[in-house]
Simulated assay, not measured.
Amino acid sequence: MTQRFANKVVLITGGSSGIGAATAKRLAAEGGMAVICGRRQQPLEEVVAEIRAQGGKADWVIADVSDEAAVNAAVAETVKRHGRLDILINNAATVVWAMIEGSSTADWNACLQGSLSSVYFGTRAVLPQMKKQGGGAIVNISSVCGLLGSPGMGAYGAAKAGMISFSQVAALEGAADNIRVNVVIPGIVMTPPTAAVMADEKAVTASARAVPLRRIGKPEELAAAILFLASDDASYITGTTLTVDGGKTCELNTGAADFS
């Protein structure tokens, strides 16, 4: 495997499972130092141990990304331990399913704080260090819920849509200092939260059938897209979005077509 991330220090929020963990493992396999961030120590330690067992470099820091001070501390600790910070991957999110009429202000605030304000906190915290180093890359993980409406996902969808706009502004503001900011937009991916809502194999099959590629995505497939945008392979790409959804959001489904 190539060593695209040799000598790079990368902070990944929400790194203890799913897309975050897959990204950390792939990053370490390509020579990077993967610093994963989350709220609970044990799952972070398990991912780090797995990476180290494969000969990769990894570390962890504890932080609740909805807490501004905790995010600042995690960034500072990463720089203190490793001397630099080249890439930030804002992957952590808070999801609350609630129809608008039955939702609470607490639901709304939790989603916005954990899925949008967290990205603002992280981006703001890393910019001075990246400027000092002569550049860097930020990849923010949005969702197809930020592109299209989905009942029960009003707060989450608003947060993920807001992330796209925020990332465009951050890309413009960071460009003069060689700091690139891009967005990856996942569709349905088989992560622990996805698996938890799949009642049985029938539900998995039905969900897969709704995707043009006829399957649910793998965390490793999202990791590949994330690391492309984070790497020097994407050195002339900033302010853009990369949708990784098996073709779902490009389809106008009238209910009459059968391509089987």
Rank of each mutant, 00 (worst) to 15 (best):
L127F: 13
A170K: 00
V61A: 14
I87A: 00
E77S: 06
A171M: 02
W97H: 11
D64T: 02
V126T: 00
V71T: 00
I100N: 15
Q113I: 08
I89N: 02
G83F: 11
A98G: 13
G136P: 05
P151D: 13
G146F: 09
V65S: 04
G102F: 11
V169R: 09
L112Q: 11
T105L: 08
M130G: 06
Y156Q: 05
D59Y: 04
N72P: 00
T78H: 09
A63I: 11
R84G: 15
S103Q: 10
A98Y: 03
L116D: 07
V79P: 12
A92C: 06
P128Q: 03
G122H: 06
A155E: 04
G83Y: 08
R124E: 05
A106K: 04
D64L: 05
Y156H: 13
K57D: 04
V79N: 08
S115A: 11
L147F: 12
I100K: 08
Q129W: 03
K57R: 10
V169I: 14
G134L: 15
L148W: 01
A170Q: 02
T105F: 07
I141M: 07
A110Q: 13
G135A: 03
A58E: 14
N140F: 04
Y120D: 07
S142F: 04
H82A: 13
D59F: 08
C111A: 12
S150N: 07
Q129L: 02
A125G: 00
G146E: 14
L127K: 01
S103T: 13
M130I: 10
S142D: 04
I141W: 05
S165M: 12
D107L: 10
K160F: 06
C145I: 01
G122M: 13
G152C: 03
A137H: 02
W97G: 05
S142P: 07
M130P: 10
L112E: 02
S142C: 06
G162F: 13
W60L: 07
L147K: 13
D107C: 00
G152L: 03
S115C: 04
A110F: 06
A125I: 00
G134P: 11
I62K: 03
V61E: 08
S66W: 07
S104D: 08
L147N: 05
N109G: 00
C145T: 12
K160D: 04
L112A: 02
S142Y: 01
G154Y: 04
T94V: 11
K160Q: 04
A158I: 02
G136N: 04
G154V: 05
T78S: 00
V61I: 10
A98N: 06
A93C: 12
Q133A: 13
M163K: 07
D67N: 15
A158K: 09
Q129V: 12
A137P: 05
A58G: 06
F121T: 09
